[in-house]
Design a protein around this nucleic acid. Structure first.
Lengths: 141, 141
DNA sequence: AAAGATTGACTAATCAATCTTG
DNA sequence: CAAGATTGATTAGTCAATCTTT
């Protein structure tokens, strides 16, 4: 339980600190940056379903997130070449620019927050725990 | 950045898994449990401001959280003995019962999710990072 | 029928304005 | 005027229903 409490508390605190720094230095929120990074990782092949999976929200929410990105000119929906039910969400050049700019601030803010603490081993443990949780979720038997 | 990503991703995944388990076995959500635990820790002396601090939401949100707890019969506002602007939020006996019941499920769900992984050192590191972040926030100079 | 996505009704958060008491 | 709390307007999430395409 102590682990759970520390994890939740710190994640909220770190997210808030980085978000504050981003809002102070530009128009992009951490939530937006998070979405832009997912699009970048998918290299323009992101479907709404992919956003939903990677961000950890429902499909409905992901669809609305895409709406807002389009409204703000950071991304655009294009037709899916192989499946007309779906569409591909792509970064615009404005989106790439916002991503780069916000990413710089984000890296710096995280770095300041972490300081000299060595976090490689924590990262590795979190990734192991993540893998276990994914496995449990896929097969709760 | 890898640390930040792993932290955020895992916190969301673990929170979701535990919340699902709680909703499956009773009426209490993880968000509610989180609030009930804060009240318990404060031993009946919790003000709205305390809720806000400990949960990591704004004062306005904390006030509405208290509204919902009262509506559901899990807590009640009483007069603050020393300051008539404020009030104390106290667990009702229903609230204590819901807390105990949900806590049991929560502990078990976290334990299942973590498995055999040893998390003491991760917990300690997260707490150190938390302390650093608190210090930075209090004195950003 | 199942999969991908969208929309509408509802819930819960933020922020700013306001009211009350210190 | 400061601090504690509440409320209203806005924003973003969930869930369920729906529409289109496979």
């Amino acid at each position: 339980m102590e682990f759970f409490d520390a994890l939740v508390r710190y994640e909220i605190a770190l997210w808030s600190a980085v978000d504050q720094e981003l809002r102070r230095s530009g128009p992009t929120s951490l939530a937006q940056l998070h979405t832009l990074r997912v699009l970048e990782r998918h290299g323009g092949d992101a479907r709404v379903q992919d956003l939903s999976d990677d961000i950890g929200v429902t499909v409905g929410a992901a669809s609305k997130i895409a709406d807002r990105l389009e409204r703000d000119g950071l991304a655009a929906r294009g037709p899916h070449p192989a499946d007309r039910r779906s569409s591909l969400i792509m970064l615009t050049s404005d989106g790439r620019q916002a991503l780069a700019c916000a990413m710089e601030v984000c890296v710096s803010a995280v770095s300041t927050a972490v300081g000299a603490e060595s976090v490689e081993s924590v990262t590795a443990t979190l990734q192991r725990l993540q893998a276990r949780l994914d496995a449990l979720g896929a097969d709760p038997a």
